[in-house]
Amino acid sequence: MSDARPDDGFRTEELLADVMSRPIGDARHVAVGAQSPIPAAAALLARVRGGGRPHVSILESRTHNFFTDGGRELFDCAGQGRLDVFFLSGGQIDGSANINLVSVGDYRNPKVRFSGSFGSAYLYFVVPRVVLFRLEHSRRTLVEKVDFISAPGTSPENVYRPGGPIALVTPLCLFAFDREQQRFRLESVHPGHSVEEVIEHTGFDFDRAAKVPQTPSPSAETLRLLREVVAPELADAYPQFAASVFGIPSRAARDSLSPPNPGVPGFGNL
């Protein structure tokens, strides 16, 4: 990632933010969780296009975060149906849209241990439109069957489930998810990539039309909005990302009040 593509005139992150902004549609409330800078950019892009709608909650941000009832408020909000769109990723994602944020190999004796399931095992069920994203499109990340189901792609009919996945976005392509068929369908392939490349690097089987369209490149206006309006707003929650992708100086560099390194244990002694 982060590969600047001067020939195309846009960065991969900018294309992905544009692609991820589309399923947001006419949503009233979009939320973005931990470690999701591109979805945050997509949500803020949708908001600037929509003249202030949807409301965007970025959990790691102070400015894009109205919650005053603690960490539970977002989840309570979602449980009531007050959250329309959320973004989730996974160490592994499989062809049935099961996601794994826990481990590879045996759970009790893993080969690889990821961070953990975060809010996925709840939000995947109650948020109507969940957009999946994975920034590494490979056979080790997009697998036939996940090693651990943090959150299942679909549920039996009697399980309470107003929500679930609608799409999967990667640096190569956009998949749509069909809940009835419990399968992904290749919607479009991003500029500079091919259907063959998608097949080669995807570990699960998916549906596709005889001719798969190319993902439209972000327009000049979209790029302007991303760079001039969205990027500065991202710096508060994702300073590293805003600095490396958009060249926005990090807060620590901007903020003369940033802490000197106290570095001395026992600092708290009276």
């Binding site: 960490g71 539970r72 399931s117 709840y122 189901i149 039996p156 309470y160």
Partner: peptide, 29 residues
Amino acid sequence: TCPALHAALQASEKGVPFLPLRGLIGSDL
């Protein structure tokens, strides 16, 4: 998962033995 932790602490806060939570079913958690 995040809301399960919040709910389990709220149970403790209320002095009740448990709280129910949606989602989760079908997760290996």
